[in-house]
Design a protein around this nucleic acid. Sequence first.
DNA 1: CGCTTATGAATGAACGTTCATTCATTCTAG
DNA 2: CTAGAATGAATGAACGTTCATTCATAAGCG
Lengths: 186, 186
Amino acid sequence: MDNKRDQILRAAENIIANEGLHNLSMQKLAKDAGVAAGTIYRYFTDKDELIDELRRDVLTQIADSILQGSEIGSVEQRFRCIWFNIIRLGETCTMERLNFEQYTHLPGANSEEHRQFERATFAPLHALFNEAKAEGVIVDLNDELLFALALEPAVGLCRRMRRTGLNFSMDELEVVCDLSWHAIKR
Amino acid sequence: MDNKRDQILRAAENIIANEGLHNLSMQKLAKDAGVAAGTIYRYFTDKDELIDELRRDVLTQIADSILQGSEIGSVEQRFRCIWFNIIRLGETCTMERLNFEQYTHLPGANSEEHRQFERATFAPLHALFNEAKAEGVIVDLNDELLFALALEPAVGLCRRMRRTGLNFSMDELEVVCDLSWHAIKR
DNA sequence: CGCTTATGAATGAACGTTCATTCATTCTAG
DNA sequence: CTAGAATGAATGAACGTTCATTCATAAGCG
């Protein structure tokens, strides 16, 4: 019965998304997950480890969603796919799932160990940037700067959509995606 | 003695910046601020209101820092000033002050009431965008999209500098600022 | 097959601690 | 002397965690 563990993780994700980390108590979590308080400790050694596992779990979900479908086409097509995947994270934001910014504020998300896990999870993105640089399609800057220039706008809009609940029109988004791409295009 | 109130806010900011919101207890806060636990309740009705006040206080600090010196020069010069002010927030990030991303995750930061306060606080930035659009210097998009395209890269780099502790060279930053500006330049 | 025994997942009451908040008391400035 | 500011011990609720107990299922055996 490994789905107990998953029930617990999903319930924890839900509570943090809706009420914040400071409202995640083990008894509430147990109640929401439909298990007894003690059961949680069969699957996680303590609250810290549970949050640790949740962090990894959520990052994997987010990365899958962002990289989905970005394996085919020209580098520009693949870039646009990722750009709109990020936007989609803001549009389809439910109250049941943690989003990227909430995730980055889980304790431990800034540890060297976790950043390494992050780098590995987003390896396909780095591969795309390297390919594009090798082809001479985009400017030769390091990946952090490229991400900041071209994808951070999408992240920012995603964040704003979630915060304000306001959506942007497809036309507007197309324009911004275009300008984002041209910002790093050689 | 209104500096008692400020002592308390500064100590709260410090604790949240260093140990996170979930480690902010009223007794620890009292000890760190150098007052008795009961004294806090002379200045704030309860913990929620204290965090409310802290949120406003920190936003004002951040806005002052970001807008500092951006009143003079051409729209491009003023834009560059703001862009590097944001970067400076990442570089001079101390452990004693809350940064922008930590601030956005204080409970209540997404309330309609607070977003209105935010808009008012950043009014000079909206004025700058409007002036630039009126002059025809930048593309005619709404402020959210302009911010996402041109300033979100700076915010992203600021965030990364704080998370990883890594700084970028002035040359690199100049290049990225330039490309950010050109992304919205007509 | 039926009966007994062993297993370990699941439980939730109970534990000691820490929490936010209160208030009778003490201090202090005018 | 007095009024308001400051105190910090006291309070009960809520916290993370533990553990004796329960119970459905599996294993062992004649």
